[in-house]
Design a protein around this nucleic acid. Structure first.
Lengths: 191, 191
DNA sequence: TTCATTTCTTAAACTACATTAAGTTTTTTC
DNA sequence: GAAAAAACTTAATGTAGTTTAAGAAATGAA
């Protein structure tokens, strides 16, 4: 299956997009492959792109004051990912976006963004629904961060996404869950 | 100024809403006042409403396993607040929404939600932009939670929102920032 | 204007998790 | 398939923040 049709398929889960409308959208989309560990954004650059993951896995992270990588977000199949602050205001990013695996992505450029919504107002609804899901996910994530211990967060995440836990290195997962790789080792060691 | 006009004004910062369109929207809005400490949602209820704060302050919190209140969100003037998971899927909420001060709110009911977007598709854009801001705020918040110590988070928040810090009790602020009220006292004591 | 309630403070004892450092295993590369 | 690089483990030591508990201050109610 051609890459962009994965996005059309996803959009059609939320709104009805006719063939004509797909053709209007097409020129705004660029699809390509990134290999494992390649960067789509680095600290200091302006984030010019919103990425849709067709296949594979991207992660958003920053380097904290102690020099450690802090992964704040993963994006797998059918998720969008970007540094929204940098993307919206076209200012320097403090984040990196990196491929955690070889990944197929579809990109929409910031300089096309307004035009795209202008030509296809229907997409307002699609992105509203996507952002609503995002917001919902954020609310749940904050709740877990505030109510569970490190060990509970790991066990909970592991029970929700057992296959995903296998896909990424433990040090990425540890920082995503808010603790150190050493502590994750310790948790896994018992039982 | 009448309450709902505060919302129209806010909407008009993002999209153009004609007088006619305002009249279409009006029947979907209910505005009222809640007094300090009153609840708009309690754990176990289904969240049927999305709230817009005209004036005052609402907070979203839950009770953790140890019985402590964990404030995960505040909403002040011109912010929307709801338990999105409960609101979207009309399932039992694990949260409380409580007035931190006497508060003027505008409410949109879940059973009007789809109809509202149907009659006023323009609002898709408004809510997309609002949710985009939300998502951006979430990304920044997660970054701060992952990179700063409790003390740094307090000082940073305090420098960004000095007036707000005065408005709410310290125990709400402490849990919002992810630590105990006792620790906040300690931080404030030094210097 | 007093009594009750809520909020804030202080300090000692405790703990979940971080840090450091060295060694081991796994994966990648050529 | 050997060497290098990346990822993971283990364990001792350290610390930021919690817990508990009691008292003080502020706020609210009658």
């Amino acid at each position: 299956m051609e890459m962009v049709s994965a996005l059309y398929k996803h959009i059609n889960k939320f709104i009805d997009l006719s063939n004509d409308e797909q053709e209007i959208l097409a020129p705004f989309l660029k699809s390509f492959t990134v290999r494992k560990k390649a960067f789509l954004l680095s600290q200091g650059q302006t984030c010019r792109t919103n990425y849709f993951v067709v296949k594979g896995c991207l992660r958003l992270y920053f380097i904290d004051i102690k020099g450690a990588e802090q992964t704040t977000q993963f994006a797998i199949e059918n998720w969008w990912i970007t540094d929204l602050t940098s993307f919206l205001f076209q200012e320097q990013s403090e984040f990196y976006i990196q491929a955690a695996e070889a990944t197929e992505v579809i990109a929409i450029e910031h300089h096309h963004y307004d035009e795209m919504f202008h030509k296809l107002p229907k997409l307002e609804r699609y992105f509203r629904l996507i952002l609503q899901k995002n917001h919902q996910a954020s609310q749940r994530r904050i709740k877990f961060l505030y109510s569970q211990t490190a060990e509970e967060r790991y066990r909970h995440f592991n029970s929700l996404f057992p296959e995903f836990v296998q896909r990424v290195p433990q040090y990425m997962l540890a920082s995503y869950l808010g603790f150190t790789p050493e502590f994750l080792s310790k948790i896994r060691a018992k039982k």
